[in-house]
């Protein structure tokens, strides 16, 4: 039996909204460590890995590990019916084919419940290796979203290069070319505006902009996003889910044959 009560139910809405356009259906794996989701987009170019730890929940009981297959569009429909400040409780039986969501308003004057049908989903589980990244950039998530949006209007592909001078995003298209350089800024008055660059070795990688832009749908989750890069390996784009877990996107690079 599963019972999980999340006081910040709005967090769940933000996670699902961030991934539902990339992945149509996914297994949500529930165990004593919490909720985990790993899924590839339909083109198998990017991978989503989410972990919401059990200690994020006010109450968490999971007697037996289970995998709940869901249509993320349907899950988003259900969560859309929750208020942003609602407390969300999930309940499921070990061998059931449904999961129940209960939404409670903060003032406890409105309670609703929705039963969502589960589905069997065959999914490959990928092993994500531990990586020593050459460059790690932590920047305001809004800035990352803006760069992706701006460059998408010029080109389809971006080269992200990290050097001691900063991190440069370059694209080109029919219109011409565009460069945006982000430099370290640890002296900004507001912590939300700070950018931290940890460079071990210079690195440059090429990516499809439309995936990087899609990842930016997670912007409401966190003030900052972290981009981690190593030569000829997927970039990791990570949004922290407060101190409750993380939402990570991995994107395979484009490489010269």
């Amino acid at each position: 039996m599963l019972e999980a009560r999340l006081v910040q139910g709005g967090m769940l809405k933000k996670v699902v909204d961030a991934v539902k356009d990339l992945v149509t259906e996914a297994n949500i794996d529930v165990s004593s460590s919490g909720f985990q989701l790993q899924a590839m987009d339909t083109s198998h170019v990017s991978l989503i890995a989410m972990h919401l730890r059990s200690d994020a929940f006010e109450h968490f009981r999971c007697d037996r590990a289970m995998s709940m297959g869901m249509s993320l569009a349907n899950l988003a429909k259900v969560l859309k019916c929750a208020g942003n400040d609602d407390i969300v409780t999930l309940k499921a039986n070990d061998d059931g084919d449904t999961v129940t969501f209960m939404f409670e308003s903060p003032k406890e004057d409105r309670v609703s419940d929705f039963e969502l049908k589960l589905m069997d989903i065959d999914s490959e589980h990928l092993g994500i290796p531990d990586t020593d990244y050459c460059a790690t950039v932590t920047m305001p998530s809004g800035e990352y979203a803006r760069i992706c949006k701006d460059l998408s209007s010029i080109g389809d592909t971006v080269v992200i290069s990290a050097t001691k001078d900063g991190v440069k995003f370059t694209t080109s298209g029919d219109v011409g070319t565009a460069n945006v350089t982000v430099r370290q800024n640890t002296t900004a008055d507001k912590k939300e505006d700070q950018t931290i660059i940890d460079l071990k070795e210079p690195v440059a990688l090429t990516f499809a902009l439309r995936y990087l832009t899609s990842f930016a749908k997670a912007t409401p989750l966190a003030t900052h996003v972290t981009l981690s890069m190593t030569r000829e390996l997927p970039v990791m784009v990570e949004y922290a889910i407060q101190d409750m877990g993380f939402l990570r996107f991995y994107l395979a690079p484009k490489i010269e044959d």
Partner: peptide, 14 residues
């Protein structure tokens, strides 16, 4: 033009 790689080329199935 650089070619798009699949994520499965980097992360093996476990």
């Amino acid at each position: 033009k650089p070619g798009q790689r699949s994520i499965t080329a980097f992360f093996g199935t476990s």
